[in-house]
């Protein structure tokens, strides 16, 4: 999106007048590792959801969590804080 803006299109001081438009930005392509959730081990405590610095952990209807890979930067904090070791980080290249 930003690629198409000319300097004339920018707001004064590069102010962003639209609230919350960071949600349009794909940060998932920064990722080199992604979290894999193991439902067998997960007890739905929600610590991964709480600690995710990008609010990329989504609460599902059944009470489990899953990363939104459009935003997830692969930092691995969720895997580190999970008390049940239910989250594993794997290389993006791995299936």
């Amino acid at each position: 999106m930003a690629d198409e803006l000319s300097w004339r299109d920018l707001e004064v001081g590069n102010i962003v007048l639209e609230a919350g438009n960071a949600s349009f930005r794909r940060t998932g392509d920064w990722r080199s590792e992604r979290p894999i959730m193991d439902k067998e081990k997960c007890n739905k405590c929600g610590l991964c959801w709480l600690y995710c610095p990008d609010a990329a952990m989504k609460l599902l209807d059944d009470g489990y969590y899953e990363p939104e890979l459009f935003y997830c930067k692969g930092c691995g904090i969720c895997a580190r804080v999970c008390p049940r070791e239910a989250i594993t980080m794997i290389e993006e290249e791995e299936k």
Partner: peptide, 24 residues
């Protein structure tokens, strides 16, 4: 009227921002 001041400038927007500032 929420808005953002001081968002960071990625390489694809920084040059445009500085030129807009300079012309003004």
């Amino acid at each position: 009227k929420p808005m953002t001041h001081g968002a960071f400038g990625l390489p694809e927007i920084y040059s445009e921002t500085k030129i807009a500032q300079e012309v003004a």
